[in-house]
């Protein structure tokens, strides 16, 4: 499946990027394509293109704060979790999504 996601934590220097890495690793291991945007202290990096969002089957928001551009995902299937979940259990999270999405 096609996954897009946003990661954003409070300090915006560490959890954000660990969550991104873990999610990318777990998704690729399970054979999905994934693009992650980060909204750290530095601002938005790797911004998701509207095409990627359009083609996505599911949106993963690993966020502890309010994020910019949330309205981009209106009408999409959205999974929202704290960054902690992505950091600790990204593999299980992907599996959980697979089971519940029933594609």
């Amino acid at each position: 499946m096609n996954i897009v996601g946003v990661a954003a934590c409070v300090a915006g220097v560490a959890h954000t990027y660990i969550a991104k890495e873990k999610l990318i690793k777990a998704a690729q291991k399970a054979g999905h394509t994934i693009s992650m945007e980060t909204q750290g202290q530095i601002g938005i990096e790797d911004e998701l293109s509207s095409e990627k969002i359009k083609n996505a089957d599911v949106v993963i928001l690993a966020v502890d704060t309010a994020i910019k551009g949330r309205d981009r995902f209106t009408g999409k299937k959205v999974v929202e979790i704290p960054t902690e979940v992505a950091v600790h259990s990204s593999g299980k999270l992907i599996k959980h999504i697979e089971e519940n999405l029933k594609l």
Partner: peptide
């Protein structure tokens, strides 16, 4: 194999 923590994932909902 990277053991992962057992967080309660059942409460995570997919909206939309």
């Amino acid at each position: 194999s990277e053991e992962e923590q057992d967080l309660n994932l059942s409460s995570i909902k997919i909206s939309g």
